[in-house]
Amino acid sequence: MSEAALFDTVKYKTRKMEPGDSFPESLYPEILRGINSFPKVLFYKGDIVTGLFDNCVAVVGSRNMTMYGRTVTRNLVSALCAGGITVVSGFMYGIDATAHASCVEFGGKTVAVMPCGIEMIHPPRQKDLYMDILQNGGLVLSEYDEEFPPCVWTYPRRNRIVAGLCKAVLVVEAGEDSGSLITAGFARKYGRRVMAVPGPVTSLVSAGTLKLIKEGADMVCSAEDLMRLLGHGKGQVIGEHFVETIENNLNKLSTKIISVLGKEPLDISMLSKILEIDIPLLSVEMTNLSLAGVICEREGMYYVS
């Protein structure tokens, strides 16, 4: 592993907790002790605030996140943060990283369970996110010490901790052979609630979540669904409600663009065909909408943000 992956241990000291600790009061999460293969020792960085492990929900998903997955993750995590629920995930890029990042952004509590030694950052290029988590009162956990490298078998073992810490696991996007399905499998084994977000049947990264729903997982279509399933009433979403207010001030063409993009994300050529508007004129409108923050572009596709 590259040197960049090594973490500066001066600022955030590594501590450990064991299930047998009893003085003054065990930090080891009670809920994790409920699984039959609970880790004998856990290393962690950051502070364990009271109640951190009392109400945890895992938000996991595909590495190959789509814009849809990103939007949904942010939206649902914001509801979890508002409800004071701790968001647990696996720190992998894609949905996991988005879940952590959104949680930091919305001021919620988050726990990252690493597949490698506690002194390593994996994947290394997410160092900034790692620091963000710790600086905002989050927690980084691992059952491996030092610079134990991540390997094929540490990922599923990490997933068992993710599932074991939480009373429910939410899968946002997952391919057919995704590691998130392993997490969901553990959750089911441990008697935790499994929830999944549906997606288009044509999407490769929704194949796994749709499979979970077919097998009986709870379907989550909105923040309300999620909070109701978690027994939190209706719940609320922080921010994200600006589209309506801006919409009043938009001209006719912009309204048309938003309504079309609201149905499905499109690239500019297709949009011009559908709206029957020339590219130059449409480009001007797209720039204005992007600058207003109403739509956003990713890899050539336009989305309503």
């Binding site: 130059p280 004129l281 480009s283 001007v284 409108e285 797209m286 720039t287 992007s290 572009e297 050539g300």
Partner: peptide, 15 residues
């Protein structure tokens, strides 16, 4: 004029 800038931005800003 603004439309010219706006169109030019379309081709540059895409990440």
């Amino acid at each position: 004029e603004p439309p010219h800038i706006a169109e030019a931005l379309q081709y540059k800003t895409s990440t």
